[in-house]
Amino acid sequence: MLKTIVIRVALGLLTLWAVSILIFGATEILPGDVASAVLGQGATPETLAVFRHELGLDRPSYVRYLEWFFNALHGDLGIAMTNKRVIVETIAPRLTNTLFLAGYAALIAVPTSVVLGIVAAINEGKFIDRFVNIISLMTISVPEFFIAYVLILYLAVQFEVFPSLSTVFPEMDFSEKIYTAALPAFTLTMLVMAHMLRMTRTSVLSIMSQPYIEMAFLKGLTRSQVIVRHALPNAAAPIISVIALNLAYLIVGVVVIEVVFVYPGIGQFMVDGVAKRDLPVVQACGLIFAGAFVGLNTVADVLAIMVNPRLRHPR
């Protein structure tokens, strides 16, 4: 089993490396180069040359990739093109904010949706299942900003329970932050809950149709004994991957939500970077998002390996 885990982790690192090439490469496929794209048609060859030199674009791309990659390994993500500030300094507090928001939402969403998903599955076809199904289908179907605006309209404008803008500051204490970030956290929660719930339901249902579940019923066990002893141990691995997949989804959902609520996180920073076509910023943020995504998937697979009885107890 240890070998399987080591291989999976190595694969994760390999993926991360491939991802870094892809992120860097994506900014290189432009006909012409970044300098002419940024400066536009009107730039004279002289200004272009100066700008290229300033960006280091006059060197071959693999040299620039290696430099970028090894700097990133040391925690140096370069300097922003637009305001010439060190990117890491800008990103660090924003990353903390984003992780705070994502963690906040995950803490509510994961337990609720896993429990509801299991409840829906074991009551397949009954009222509670259909009800949960329809609600989650609706939630999946609406864009994230719709949920956000409805929450703002009712909870911030009409009833003034929570603030509509969620600008958190480092000086705020923990409870203030919780209060300020409530609306974006709720929006994110609803967003991932629907997916997580439906996927949990599906994976529990696929376990429920296994012959050993029928056998458990034929052994005269009660429904709850069958589910707790026979279904859940086998559903653990699929549920773990459902959670990981949705946490990854949550990380991406953060981007739009942060813009709606003007929440000072890394998503908003990236969107600003894209609008200003600030490539070093975009690359840095992209690397962080992709890293989190790959990391989560790797952790999920490792956990799934650890709960698999076939791998835990080889022949």
Binding site: P211, Y212, E214, M215, P233, N234, P309
Partner: peptide, 11 residues
């Protein structure tokens, strides 16, 4: 049952 492999819980 016919298939013992499927009727035992792998966990």
């Amino acid at each position: 049952a016919q298939s013992a492999a499927a009727s035992f819980n792998p966990a």
